[in-house]
């Protein structure tokens, strides 16, 4: 049974989330602040850490930094604030494996935990979400400069399409719903606008696919969403 370390200063959250995760088949250990979390990891690393960013005292970002600087590769899912794209970008850069905006659907958290656990911990080096450069075949995404290259030539993409590609590539192999993309990439929850996602995916395909009509990288999962089907590695 995978062991999850749940870190949040709000007892109302941990009191309810812990039993939910247990019922979903995880062993759960709770820490109420950043220092307690670090002590827990030092005593015996869990299989995954669910970490709240905003905590009094040592906050989630500081815990994340401390763990990564100490060489720990334990998978970490950050609980962030929606709309603060800067916060999310920094979280990924500092080595989180995924993030989820509060308030989230607890089922979604379970799905993310399973997806991150399935990915497995890479033997060394940064995880996909923390990598500055991602490669899939001849396609290279440089996240620091927000540039996308194919066979060494730069592709012209809108910033949103680049962010969308980054999200899909860091979640390669996972089917991501339009609603989730809207929330994670756009920061929206307006239900009338899932077509926006399709428009950006079409733009992305025109740029990155050899044959946009027959996509091999960004594939549609009918009735569910999109999935990045190519192999992705940190470059």
């Amino acid at each position: 049974m995978p062991r999850i370390l749940l870190v949040d200063d709000e007892a109302a959250i941990t009191d309810n989330l812990a039993p939910f995760l247990q019922r979903s088949g995880f062993e759960v250990v709770v820490a109420g602040d950043g220092d307690a979390a670090l002590a827990r990891v030092a005593a015996g690393p869990p299989d995954l850490v669910v970490l709240d960013v905003l905590m009094p005292g040592r906050d989630g970002r500081s815990v994340l930094r401390e763990l990564r600087q100490g060489g720990s590769t334990v998978p970490i899912i950050l609980l962030t604030q929606v709309g603060e794209s800067l916060e999310r970008a920094m979280a990924l850069e500092e080595g989180a494996d995924d993030y989820l905006n509060k308030p989230f659907d607890p089922h979604e958290l379970v799905a993310r935990i399973r997806a991150v656990l399935r990915r497995g911990t890479p033997p060394a080096g940064p995880s996909l979400t923390g990598a500055h450069r991602l490669r899939s075949g001849s396609l290279v995404l440089d996240r620091t400069s927000q540039r996308v290259l194919r066979d060494g030539a730069e592709l012209v993409l809108t910033p949103r399409a680049t962010t969308l590609l980054a999200y899909l590539m860091t979640h390669a192999g996972e089917t991501v719903s339009r609603e989730r993309l809207l929330e994670e990439v756009w920061g929206w929850s307006f239900h009338t606008s899932t077509r926006t996602v399709d428009t950006r995916v079409a733009e992305l395909r025109r740029a990155v696919e050899a044959e946009p009509g027959d996509p091999q990288l960004v594939v549609t999962v009918p009735g569910e969403g999109y999935r990045f089907a190519g192999p992705v590695e940190a470059a």
Partner: peptide, 20 residues
């Protein structure tokens, strides 16, 4: 927005437990 987030997160977890 910030102050509502934690209570809402707790409530969603609580109702998910309740539903089970």
């Amino acid at each position: 927005d910030h102050e509502l987030k934690n209570p809402l997160t707790a409530m969603r977890a609580a109702t998910a437990n309740l539903a089970a």
